[in-house]
Computed example of a mutant assay.
Amino acid sequence: MINQVEIQNFRGMKYCKLEDLSQINILVGRNNSGKSTILEAIYFISSLEEQYDRIRKINKIDYLTRRRLEGKTWENLRNIILIAKSDNLITLSSMNMDIFSQFFYNFSRNEKIVFNVSENNYTYSIEVSYKDENQIVLKTNKSLNNDLSELFKNTVLIDDDLSLPQLYDIIGELKMNKRKDKEIVRLLKEEFEVDAEGIEFSRYLGDYVLSLTLKDTSIPVDFLGDGAKLAILISSILLYFNGKGIALMEEPEVHEHPGGIYTVLNFAFKIAKEKGIQFFITTHSSDVINYSLKIAKKLGLKTQLVYLRRVNGRVNSVNLTEDNVSLLEEIGMDLRAIDAL
C-alpha cells in the first residue's frame, strides 16, 4: 500500500505531503483545502500506468478534464491528451497547451512539477518538464515495482458521477466470472437482511433493469433504499478489482442518511479487508469520520485521519491519532472545525 504521497504544483495545489498513510485514510478539512485534489493527483498518477478507467470506460485524464468543465466545453476538448511511454519517459501530447494549465499550478516553463509516491521503502518519482509547444514530458526515476503497478492498474475514483446503470456491464462480467455477484448478495443479506438469492437483469416497463431475485419473485434494485443501491454500486466496483487496488472515495455522505453511511462503509471495508484495497476518503461529515474509525477498528484495519489546511496554495497536513479524536469528542469539539482552535 501507499504510505506517502508528495504533490508539487498540481491543480490549484502548490505543495502537499501526506505521510504515514494506512489502509483506510480519511481526509478532512474546509472547502478548497485540497481534499479532492489529492484524490485527483493519485488518479492522475495511476493513469500513467493504466490510461483507461475500466469502470467509466473512458481515459482517466479525459475524465479528470471533464470533472472541472461544463459539458459543452468538454465535448470540444475530449480525447485531446495522448500518452506515449518509452523507458522512464512518458510524453503527454495535446494540440491545445492551455489544457495543461488545468492540471499544473502556475503552468509555465519555470515551474517544477513533481509527484512522489512511496510504497514501503520504494519511492516512485515523476518530474514534469516541457518538450515543445505541444508536448510535455514526465520523467520517472525508475520503473514501477509490481506492487505499485498492481495498485495503479486497479485505481478507481468513486464520486457522485457514478450510477448503477453505468455498471451493468461490470455486474454482468461479475456474474460470468465465478459468480462473483453472489458476494454482493451475501453482503446484502448480512447488512440489509434482504432475502435475496441472486442478481439478474429483467424487463420492467419495457426496459432492462437490475433486479434482486427473491425466493418467489424479483424486485428492481431501484425499489431499494439509497443505502442498498449505493452498497451495490460500491461493492460491484471493488469486487471487479483484479487483486489489490486503490479506492478514491469522494464524500460518501452525499444524499445518504447516517444509517446508510454506516452500512455502506461497513460494506466497503469488509471487501477492502478481503482484497487488500487501500481507501482514501474525503468527507465533511462527522458521521463518516466516526463510523470509519469504529468500523475499521472492529475489522482490524489500520486507519489514518488527516486534517488538511491550505495557506497560499500550500496544503499542510496533520495526522490525528485516536487519542486526539477521543479527546476532541470528549470536550464536544466537532472534528471538522479543528482549524478554529
Rank of each mutant, 00 (worst) to 15 (best):
A272Y: 09
Y204T: 00
L21G: 08
L89H: 08
K244M: 11
P165L: 03
E197S: 09
L39I: 10
I126P: 03
V28A: 04
E40M: 04
I184H: 08
K14N: 09
F223W: 00
E191M: 09
S36V: 05
L151D: 05
K72H: 05
S211M: 01
I24T: 10
F269E: 14
E251F: 05
N145R: 07
P258Q: 11
G29Q: 06
I45N: 06
L214S: 07
D62W: 01
R67D: 04
L212I: 13
K17H: 13
G198P: 04
K229I: 02
Y124L: 12
E49S: 13
S143Q: 14
N134F: 12
E40G: 06
L164K: 02
E191D: 10
I38M: 10
D62H: 01
N96R: 15
D181G: 09
I199N: 05
S33D: 04
A231K: 06
T213L: 12
Q304Y: 00
Q51T: 07
I232V: 13
N242K: 15
D160M: 02
Y63N: 04
Q51L: 08
E190W: 01
K229V: 00
F44G: 06
S22H: 12
L212A: 03
S285R: 09
K302Q: 14
E127G: 02
K189M: 13
Y130K: 07
G243Q: 12
E50Y: 11
I277H: 09
N25F: 14
I26G: 06
K297G: 03
L328D: 04
L320Y: 14
Q51A: 13
V254G: 00
M95R: 13
G12L: 08
F103S: 04
L27T: 10
I80L: 10
N79C: 00
L188V: 05
F223R: 01
L92V: 05
A247H: 11
F103E: 06
V318E: 14
I24P: 03
I45S: 11
Q8Y: 02
Y105F: 15
E150M: 13
D87C: 08
L167N: 04
Q23L: 12
L299F: 14
L299D: 04
N177F: 13
K57F: 01
I234D: 05
K35W: 09
S202R: 07
E75Y: 01
T217S: 15
K302C: 07
I136M: 07
F115I: 10
L48N: 05
E133T: 15
K35M: 06
N242S: 15
I271Q: 11
N79K: 11
I55S: 06
M249L: 15
S202N: 02
M13S: 05
L157E: 05
S202T: 03
K112H: 03
Q51G: 01
I26A: 08
R56Q: 01
I38R: 09
N31F: 00
S108D: 14
N145D: 15
D323F: 02
D169P: 00
I2Y: 01
R30A: 13
E111L: 04
L48C: 08
F103H: 05
G259Y: 06
I232K: 10
D132P: 11
R54H: 08
K215H: 07
A268G: 08
I271N: 12
E183Y: 15
L157D: 04
N120T: 08
E133G: 13
G34R: 03
S285Q: 09
Y291L: 07
N242T: 11
N32F: 03
T91V: 14
E49P: 03
Y307S: 10
V254R: 12
I199R: 05
